[in-house]
């Protein structure tokens, strides 16, 4: 081990005395384990919130509802208020100069701009 790595103590020691089961014993090396965890969505599905009382707070029902006000449209590139939408790229834009720029954008950038507001076309 390099001396400066050792002195910085940046690596987690493989064996920790205060643990009852060591990492290496719990997850033996070279053994395929598959996926051993669930995504939040799966966790929530498994939570069985339907059986809860209607007034009982849970992870799902404390979510904030959508805003009561209509959402404002902002230019995807400049951030100014955007009265226009480019029908080809679906990008919102503030003025003709920005429009020119939009039309020059490579498709990859268009998609990145769209994905910023979760509107990108996702091909599956």
């Amino acid at each position: 081990m390099e001396p400066d790595v050792v002195s910085s103590e940046m690596l987690l020691p493989p064996v920790l005395p205060f643990k009852k089961v060591q990492m290496a014993d719990k997850y033996p090396k070279g053994q395929a384990r598959g996926r051993h965890w669930k995504h939040l969505k799966q966790i929530l599905q498994a939570e069985n919130y339907q059986s809860y009382g209607p007034d009982e707070p849970n992870y799902l029902n404390i979510e904030t509802p959508p805003s009561m006000y209509p959402s404002k449209k902002f230019c995807d590139i400049t951030g100014f208020e955007a009265p226009y939408v480019d029908p080809r790229t679906n990008l919102r834009y503030a003025n003709p100069e920005v429009f020119k720029r939009i039309r020059m954008l490579p498709n990859e950038h268009v998609q990145r701009y769209l994905s910023l507001r979760n509107a990108a076309v996702i091909l599956r």
Binding site: S67, M68, R117
Partner: peptide, 10 residues
């Protein structure tokens, strides 16, 4: 305005 990043919540 979480709408700006496509999150439809207040």
């Amino acid at each position: 305005q979480p709408n700006m990043v496509g999150i439809d919540q207040a």
